Simulated scan of single mutants.
Amino acid sequence: MKNSTHSQPINFQNKEELKRQIFKTLDFYYPSCMDYEKGGYINGFLVDGSINNTTTKHLVATSRYIYNFSIGVILGGTSWCLEAARHGIQFLNKHHLDKQHNGYFFEMNDLGVNNSAKMAYGHAFVLLASSIAYKAGVEEAREVLDNVYNVVETHFWDTEYEFYKDEWDESWTTLSSYRGQNANMHMCEAMITSYEATGEEKYLNKAYRLAKGVTRELADRSGGMVWENYTPEWQPDYQFNKNNTKDEFRPYGFIPGHQFEWSKLLMWLDRHKSEPWMLETAEELFRKGWEKGWDAKYGGIYFALSPEMKVIDKDKNYWVMAEAIAAASLLAAKTGNHEYWDFYNQLVTYSSEYLIDHEHGGWYKLLNRKNKRYSNVKSSPPKTDYHPVAAFYQAILALD
């Protein structure tokens, strides 16, 4: 399947162009994604924008849509962005929220609960969505922000190890033995966003603890890169999901994309609370992600590495490129080292050629090593292209 290419070179170091890219993505989804009949958003789209799933309502997708439309407001978008973000906050409150036990259901099928698990990963996105929506002017998002923060601190925070636990059942009675870095990473992102929205130090302190805990303590336990899956005592679990690199939330391996994502988070945190170890660690994670992950022959970043740091999944995933773009831009802004803009330009050039759909908008989800698409599905739940929207938003801030 041939990917669409773009004839005119795009200047990705131009803030107006990055803004245009963000709105082109929002325009791909809106207004088709608005489910006015049942509430919330439609999650499933083919490449050309036609809908292939009207019933799945995923907590992460609901939250990511709210994030996207809130960024639209912050970047000066028209009134529909605010209305679209508010629409999602209403659905969170009305349907994802468990009125009996509190917390948020992970997946709905129409208005019925399809997966009632209480997942830290999902709650991290509710925190991200409610804080950015509040910042964008959705007043009622504050109630969601306060509630979800209370839920994560009460049920997920592990006071002994100072990380977030991963998964409870519906009634908060059975806790999974699984522990993972992914939920903690997105919780860190949500805490920084909550701090920026409210100015309350408790969020910044929690983001700081998570960033240091994962990128220093946990990374040390697995040889300097962040492993994905852990035992209840937060030791790397090299058997869990063995060789299943395609798990959406708990992939097996060292994921180069997550090294870049932590690099981005450290530089974002550094804007508010700067310590020398942050830049040092961010550069180290970026370098390792690049050295182990960049495909010198076909371009793009490999998806997964074994415990021995050998490539075990050569596919190119859209979000990995987006996170690397964000990290490169923030490191360039922090260090003044032009090499990071060179990395940035390599990443955006690759993404523009193979991942960005210049015809319809949005990003293709997954390519093989030779940069060919596997299917004509543009967006299955919970994609929504939040990663590219967030990455270009960070790049806009870096260019400032």
Rank of each mutant, 00 (worst) to 15 (best):
K206S: 13
K206R: 12
K206F: 10
K206E: 14
K206D: 15
A207D: 11
A207W: 08
A207E: 14
Y208C: 13
Y208H: 15
Y208E: 15
R209L: 14
R209S: 11
L210M: 06
L210P: 00
L210N: 02
L210W: 09
A211M: 08
A211R: 13
A211I: 06
K212S: 07
K212Y: 14
K212E: 12
K212A: 09
K212Q: 11
K212T: 11
K212H: 13
K212M: 09
K212W: 07
K212G: 10
G213F: 12
G213L: 11
G213M: 11
G213S: 07
V214M: 06
V214P: 00
T215D: 02
T215K: 02
T215W: 09
R216P: 05
R216N: 11
R216D: 06
R216Y: 04
E217F: 10
L218H: 01
A219E: 04
A219K: 05
A219P: 01
D220H: 11
D220W: 12
D220A: 15
R221D: 03
R221K: 15
R221S: 07
R221E: 05
S222F: 06
S222Q: 03
S222V: 08
G224V: 09
G224C: 03
G224W: 15
G224M: 13
G224A: 06
G224D: 10
G224N: 04
G224K: 04
M225W: 02
M225D: 00
M225G: 05
V226N: 08
V226S: 05
V226L: 12
W227M: 02
W227L: 04
E228C: 01
E228I: 02
E228S: 00
N229K: 07
N229G: 01
Y230H: 08
Y230N: 05
Y230Q: 11
T231K: 08
T231Q: 04
P232T: 06
E233L: 13
E233Y: 09
E233V: 10
W234D: 08
W234Y: 14
W234P: 01
Q235M: 15
Q235H: 12
Q235T: 12
P236Y: 07
P236E: 00
D237W: 14
D237K: 10
D237H: 04
D237N: 08
Y238H: 09
Y238P: 01
Y238I: 06
Y238E: 10
Y238F: 13
Y238N: 00
Q239R: 10
F240Q: 11
F240E: 07
F240K: 15
N241I: 06
N241R: 09
N241Y: 14
K242A: 11
K242C: 08
N243S: 08
N243Y: 13
N243L: 13
N243E: 14
N244C: 06
N244M: 12
N244L: 13
N244H: 14
N244G: 03
T245Q: 03
T245I: 01
T245G: 02
T245C: 09
T245V: 03
T245W: 01
K246N: 14
K246R: 15
D247A: 01
D247M: 02
D247V: 01
D247G: 01
E248H: 10
E248I: 15
E248R: 15
F249W: 14
F249V: 03
F249R: 00
F249K: 00
F249C: 00
R250T: 11
R250E: 15
